[in-house]
Amino acid sequence: MLLAETTPYAFTWNLVADVREMWSFPFMVNAFRAGAIVAVVAGAVGWFMVLRRQTFAGHTLSVVAFPGAALATLIGVSTAVGYLGACLLAAVVIAGLRESGRSGVAVESAATGTVQAFALACGFLFVTLYKGMLGGPQALLFGTFLGITTGQVALLTVVGAVVLTLLAAFGRPLLFASSDREVAAARGVPVRALGAGFLLLLGAATAEASQITGSLLVFALLVVPAATAQVLTARPVLGLALTVLLGLAACWLGLIAAFYQPYPLGFFVTTFAFAGYVLAQLTRAVRGAVGRVALPTGATS
């Protein structure tokens, strides 16, 4: 399992040679490809998720991937099918609970929490029933970048392209509905249908990302780059581009670090993403302080 113990490779500052060395392994090339697709899709969908303040729903959808994959392993179908099926099903359930929920945020979040805990418990049951999966649950929960096949990359590309196309098609009304729900509804935008449709897209994106980072750490790729971008800019197009770039950087840097170090990929990806977020917050704080200092002097002169 630990790459650094089996390979004598060490990181050098000759970056071209490093990349050539990493990419001499087909699985690393696939990992970089899959990481790029996942980072772009999760970043774009995540930006809308952060804008809509649906982090709890997003987190629930991402952990639901675990029972899906566990069930798929148990009954012997491809885990990719399990991931997608479970996430889309959970998106429908959460959207349905939201529709019928009569009252406020409190009851709604209790419903989401119950769905999440029950789904995870089901996943645990499936893992227990499937005795052969030694160390398997941890790969499902925390992800692995070893052994991503070309077929998986192709599937990721197709699903990612569908998600991005739909997002591009409905991007404008969705942005409108997300930033001002009441006004959008008054102007005839189908706010509820858009909300349900967005949950489905979120489900598909989390199902994609789960295959690389594991279902517990998808959330990092969904929320952290988007949160960082929204600290830095409020402009939609720039923010989206920044989100995708940040996600890609965290994912690829994480892959490089995980190749040379014996620690898990998820740890590096979350750490790089979180470091970006802290830097962004610091930049804003410094900029704010400089602004406060500059403003009075400008006013007096």
Partner: peptide, 16 residues
């Protein structure tokens, strides 16, 4: 929730 989510996804990464 966004700030909480950002913080805890990193804490979970530390967990792994």
């Amino acid at each position: 929730d966004v700030v909480i989510g950002t913080l805890f996804s990193w804490i979970l990464g530390l967990g792994t």
